[in-house]
Write a protein that binds this DNA or RNA. Structure first.
Length: 502
RNA sequence: GUCCCCGUAGCUCAGCCUGGAUAGAGCACUGGCCUCCGGAGCCAGGAGCACAGGUUCAAAUCCUGUCGGGGACACCA
């Protein structure tokens, strides 16, 4: 029997639509079925009551006493409130950012960074054993170009075809010279990767994002490639022609693995990499956060995994759509290919880490979005980040008035619409976390937080917490503590600060 | 040409996977609310599911098609 949450509070907290669905098979009016079902459900009266509504809904309304009785355990659970063990310690890897180490992170990388990080956080909160990984492309043409670009800068030569020319190249060149790094492209490339990686780590750290593992692409080519090639060949999936090595696909369209020039394609690296994740390291599930421009790769990698005997359903790929940046009347599309670059560092400097995170979390990852810089940097009510943070700060403040109160809380008196609404919203929190984790949809946190903040503000405006009435004050302080715990945990999972003062 | 994402209020977006009862939020706009715990707030107001078929007792939600926006279809990364 499916019990779902009602959309309209007038219908109670939960509803059952089973009678409507059964009516046809049973050849009886849904309202009759609903009546019978409702009487046989027999909920404990202390928990809730049922009501039948036309044309055949059974609505369940939670008892205020039951809601009120949950407050103490919420407040006492602290950071544990909302966490669960549904993941049962299952090992999950979230791989995200994984930008080429050929330059500092651009703002366009930040969306995937935030989505990946919060996905990892909600999986952890749901009892999964999560590993955060950064796949580092430390070989291949782009890396060679990085080394050559630095060398060209040192020797004051023109930038090589397709090379890199940003100011950071000059910085790297200066440091390399100062440290007397040997001016060979290979050595300079190594030095450059190191320099860029340090910078990338700094930028991510400012967003409170850290990876557990930096996985080097070069590690895939120490035998694992031959082993995998042999396996695919034995499965009849390898062909050699036109000077290249191909994967023969069921679609009939072969894909290059090794190019004529001897370099591997990204497809080949991805096959090796994902086989490594599942077979060598034994992750039960893997979540990859990729830019939407990699969508063509998803089907291919999954097919290859299937061929290798790995269930492709164990791999979830979150395709993060494009971000455009709006500054005043001007909108700039952030395409990596187009090379439109705003460095992530500059944006964090301008709007702060909380706004960057919160704004990205307000959109589902699969929708293109616009980032309004001026809105994000505005220190006012128009900025949605502050609405949530202010709700937390208000509660933190009111709680300072309650220290030392010893009266027994009169829980039953928390019966106004605002108090009951706040309790109902709070009690959804564990479901929100679990569902967001299962669906890999971090944006649900932001929408919940916004609703919770609204309920908190309404409660605060309509129910004065600290009064001469000690038992009522104690009850409202308990409600405030539980609400504060909830919004602090929600902001915490989003990686957004929950300040006591603003 | 094939495939993927998107089209919901003036603007930015949830809801769609798993169909239910008057479709939500923020911003913008209009009008109210500070003797009292923080007005970065609260209360009230209007307006919308791109279009056309289909499935169903019931469609924003599922199916098909059309139109519009973006992306992918490389021995690029």
């Amino acid at each position: 029997m499916l019990v779902e949450r009602t959309q309209n509070p007038a219908h109670g907290d939960y509803s059952v639509t089973l009678p409507l669905k059964l009516a046809k098979t049973l050849r009886r009016p849904p309202i009759t079925i609903a009546d019978e079902l409702a009487t046989s459900m027999a909920l404990p009266p202390s928990f809730g009551r049922t009501a039948v509504a036309a044309p055949g809904f059974i609505n369940i309304t939670l008892e205020p006493a039951w809601l009120q009785a949950q407050l103490a355990s919420i407040a006492d659970a602290g950071e544990r409130w909302g966490r669960s063990e549904v993941g049962r310690g299952s090992r999950v890897q979230v791989e995200f950012v994984s930008a080429n180490p050929t330059g500092p992170l651009l703002f366009s990388h930040a969306r995937g960074a935030v989505v990946g990080d919060v996905t990892a956080r909600i999986l952890e909160a749901s009892g999964f054993d999560v590993q955060r990984e950064y796949y580092l492309n430390d070989k291949g043409r782009q890396i060679r170009l990085l080394g050559e670009s630095i060398q060209a800068r040192i020797l004051d030569r023109p930038v090589p075809e397709g090379g890199y020319s940003g100011d950071y190249i000059a910085e790297i060149a200066m440091e390399a010279t100062a440290k007397a790094v040997s001016p060979e492209p290979e050595t300079l490339a190594e030095f450059g990767i190191e320099w860029v990686q340090t910078r990338i780590k700094e930028d991510l750290a400012r967003l409170d994002i850290r990876h557990d593992e930096i996985f080097l692409e070069s590690g895939l080519y120490a035998g694992w490639d031959r082993d995998t090639m042999t396996k695919l060949a034995s499965l009849g999936r390898i062909a050699e022609y036109d000077g290249a090595t191909w994967f023969t696909s069921d679609s009939g369209k072969d894909e290059v693995l090794i190019k004529r020039d001897g370099y591997p394609t990204y497809f080949w690296s991805d096959i090796l990499y994902h086989r490594d994740k599942f077979e060598k390291r034994g992750f039960a599930r893997v979540v990859d956060v990729w830019g939407a421009d990699h969508q063509g790769q998803v089907g291919r990698v999954k097919e290859a995994l299937g061929v290798l005997g790995i269930d492709p359903a164990r791999l979830a790929v979150l395709l993060v759509q494009l971000v455009s940046v709006k500054r005043g009347q001007e909108t700039v599309r952030m395409s990596r290919r187009a090379g439109v670059g705003i460095f992530l560092k500059e944006m964090i400097d301008e709007v702060g880490p909380d706004a960057v995170r919160y704004f990205f979390l307000q959109r589902s990852a699969d929708a293109q979005m616009e980032f309004d810089v001026e809105l994000a940097r505005r220190q006012s009510s128009e900025n949605p980040v502050y609405y949530a943070q202010y709700a937390h700060a208000r509660l933190a403040n009111v709680l300072t008035f309650g220290v030392g109160a010893t009266a027994e809380p009169a829980l039953a008196r928390l019966d106004s619409e605002w108090e009951l609404e706040l309790m109902r919203v709070m009690l959804r929190w564990p479901d929100v976390v679990r569902e967001a984790a299962e669906a890999h949809e971090p944006h649900r946190l932001a929408f919940f937080t916004d609703e919770l903040a609204a309920a908190i503000h309404r409660f605060y405006k309509n129910c004065r917490v600290v009064t001469e009435d000690a038992p009522l004050t104690a009850a409202r302080l308990l409600l405030s503590r539980a609400a504060r715990t909830t919004i602090a945990n929600a902001l915490g999972l989003m990686g957004v600060a929950a300040p006591d003062r603003m």
